[in-house]
Structure formats: structure tokens, C-alpha cells
Nucleic acid binder design. Structure first.
Length: 370
DNA sequence: TAAGCGTGGTC
DNA sequence: TGACCAAGCTT
């Protein structure tokens, strides 16, 4: 079978990779809330660095679809980075609830405060300056520098890794192969429109060079792709084997007063679900210490009723949470508070906690009929 | 360097 | 239907 000879990166006899990719990008522009229109871009308008940063942090390990409503909510509530810097942390955590990876929200607030206090409310316009801020790593610093400030920064995320690993048929497994791939991205990134190039690489990975069943026939790199020439693009990127997920077990306690208030408390600032709101729970351990569960209830004298199990899968373990509920009189509590069921939606409750509460109170979080 | 860190969509 | 995985960062 006749194969097309791969072109070099900047072959003299045709457009470069970057030129072909940008031509594809101009034909397939995706409208996204944090992007500016191609017309505005052509007129030399730059996007708002605050919006680019906010969207990039939200998009870390998170799909565009999941981010959209959160991005709209944050932008409406805190239109500028100085607004976010001045906001109460609890409000920010509550607004982030449900999006996951809550360290991002804690760092988002810290970063906004640093920009407001140390940079006069203006984002640094270099990769290095951005990289020094909380929650901004290799990817985000390069992405904001390129997209918001037109810097020639090499942007590599999961999409770009997939595109590069296929284009060059890189057999070495991730994450060890990252430096090799990064060098390729550096080589490809143009001085003209580096931000569009970065977004184009990510769009290509998201829409054409997909993990399963890539649409190679539509790819601007189809004549150069070594993985396609080798007839098995899906084989890339090669990844290190992942560990199996352990199971942890615990119990959660939903105490309800006759007035319809639920006992809540705040988790410690660090670690899993750090700084978020929860209903009281036991520790989550490999084995349930059978028989003594109720002894760990916040109000041990209450009449606790088992009402089912919630299974929730975190990144590195599966949680089986036995749910107990009790009708209790409103008593003073050391490290918690009583929250009306109707206002639970304003709390910084992660999804697993909402599931626990709904298991005990099926009508919680139900929209009131009008 | 490897492990810890959420959630929802997809096939 | 369960395994995979999405615009990663921190320690």
C-alpha cells in the first residue's frame, strides 16, 4: 500500500502544520462563552484575561458542557477579578459546589486575591508571572499567556497529548513521554496567532482526534499522521496501567428537626472535599466497624433509622455510605449548625452530600411548584 | 515521582 | 453497565 511521505514541520514545499491547522480552525470556529468572535479577533481585540483564566481553571479535567452554567453564574456574580477577590470564601465554595475538584475553588479565590493585592487587579501577562499564582500550573499559565496575551507559549493538555502522540506515533507511555511531546508542541507553535493555534489543537483533539473513533478523514494532519499511516490511531496515546479502585465504607447522619432544619457542619480546609459543607459522617474506612455505627452519630440518643445506601465513586476510591435519619429536637451543637431544608441549595454541598440528604429526605432540593 | 483530588457524560 | 475519561494542580 502506497503511503504518503510525511512532511517535515516547516517544509518549504507547502504550508506548515500550524498554517494548515489555523486554516482548519478558521473554518470550524466553535462559539464558546469565554471566546471572542473571529471578527473581533481580526480587529486586534484581545479576550478578557479574567474570563480566560476563569474558564481555564473550570475546564481543568472538566467538560465544556459542565463548565458552561458555572462560568455564566460566576461571571454574572463576580464580573471582575477584584469582585471575586472581595467575595466571601463560603459564597465562592457554594457557587462551585457540584463542579468537583474543590481545591480549584480554594485556589481560585487565593489567585484572585493575589492578583488584586499584588498586581493591582491586573493579571500578569507572561507565562512565568502567571505560573507563580495559586492553582495555575504548566498548562493554565501557557494557555492564558497564549490566548489572552498573544504569547508564543506551548500549550499542552490532554487533547494536545493525544494529537501529538498520534501525529508522531509516540510509543512511550504517558506521563513519562510528556517532555518529548512538549518539545514537539514547542516546535509547532507559531509566533503568529499562538493563542488560536493552542485553541485549534485542543478543538482538534475534542472534535476530530477523539479518544475513540477519530474522524481522521476530516483531519488537517491526515497526510502526516504516523499513527494513521500505521493504521491504528486509537492505540495512542499509550498510558501507564492504572490501579484498581479500593472500596471505602462509612455512615452519614441526617438529623431533622420538627421545623425542617438539617444538621450541617463544615469540613476541614484541606484534603477530600476540603472546606465544603457536609452532614455528619463517620470516618470512611476500608472496613465498617460493625455494630457501633450509631455510637458515632452526632446525637447518639436519637432514634436513628437506616434508610438505604448511597454509592459514590471518587477519583481514587468508591464510597458506600449507609444513610441514617432521625427526627430530633433542635439542640445546641459544637461544630455545626441547623439549616432549613429550603435553603440547602445555597450551601456548599458537594454532590455526594446532596445524594446522602436526598436519600434521607427525598423532597430536598426539589424545586417548589409555582 | 506518584498519589490525592469530583463529577457527569459516553459507549 | 461499568470502564473510560474531560482545556490539571499540588504536595
Amino acid at each position: 500500500m502506497l503511503q504518503t511521505l510525511p512532511k517535515t514541520t516547516n517544509s518549504a514545499d507547502g504550508p506548515t502544520h500550524a498554517e494548515r491547522l489555523l486554516a482548519w480552525y478558521d473554518r470550524h470556529h466553535r462559539e464558546l462563552p469565554w471566546r471572542i468572535s473571529p471578527t473581533a479577533a481580526k480587529a486586534g481585540i484581545r479576550p478578557d484575561p479574567y474570563r480566560i483564566w476563569l474558564s481555564e481553571v473550570m475546564l481543568q479535567q472538566t467538560t465544556v458542557q459542565a463548565v458552561k452554567p458555572y462560568f455564566a453564574k460566576f461571571l454574572e456574580r463576580w464580573p471582575k477579578v477584584t469582585d471575586l477577590a472581595a467575595a466571601p470564601s463560603d459564597d465562592v465554595m457554594a457557587a462551585w459546589a457540584g463542579l468537583g475538584y474543590y481545591a480549584r475553588a480554594r485556589n481560585l479565590k487565593k489567585c484572585a486575591e493575589a492578583v488584586a493585592a499584588d498586581h493591582g487587579g491586573v493579571f500578569p501577562d507572561t507565562e512565568k508571572g502567571l505560573r507563580a499564582l495559586p492553582g495555575i500550573g504548566d498548562y493554565t499559565s501557557a494557555a492564558v499567556a497564549a490566548i489572552a496575551f498573544n504569547r508564543q507559549s506551548a500549550v499542552m493538555d490532554g487533547n494536545v497529548e493525544r494529537v501529538i502522540s498520534r501525529l508522531y506515533a509516540i510509543d512511550a507511555p504517558l506521563p513519562g513521554s510528556k517532555p518529548v511531546m512538549k518539545a514537539k508542541v514547542v516546535e509547532l507553535t507559531p509566533s503568529d496567532r499562538p493563542g488560536d493555534f493552542a485553541q485549534a489543537m485542543m478543538d482538534l483533539g475534542a472534535t476530530i482526534c477523539t479518544p475513540k473513533r477519530p474522524a481522521c478523514a476530516l483531519c488537517p494532519f491526515r497526510d502526516d499522521c504516523l499513527a494513521l499511516a500505521g493504521d491504528d490511531p486509537e492505540r495512542f496515546p499509550v498510558k501507564a496501567a492504572k490501579k484498581e479502585k479500593p472500596v471505602r465504607q462509612g455512615a452519614a447522619f441526617v438529623a431533622v428537626t420538627p421545623d425542617g432544619e438539617v444538621l450541617l457542619r463544615k469540613r476541614i480546609e484541606t484534603g477530600l472535599l476540603g472546606g465544603m459543607t457536609e452532614v455528619p459522617t463517620t470516618a470512611w474506612t476500608a472496613r465498617l466497624d460493625g455494630g457501633t455505627t450509631i455510637d458515632h452519630a452526632p446525637i447518639p440518643s436519637a432514634d436513628w433509622q437506616a434508610c438505604g445506601t448511597v454509592i459514590h465513586v471518587f477519583t481514587h476510591f468508591e464510597l458506600r455510605l449507609a444513610i441514617f435519619r432521625a427526627r430530633v429536637t433542635r439542640v445546641a451543637v459544637d461544630n455545626g449548625w441547623w439549616e432549613p431544608v429550603e435553603s440547602l441549595e445555597n450551601q456548599a454541598l458537594p454532590t455526594v452530600m446532596k445524594k446522602a440528604i436526598v436519600q434521607a429526605i427525598p423532597l430536598a432540593f426539589a424545586k417548589a411548584p409555582n
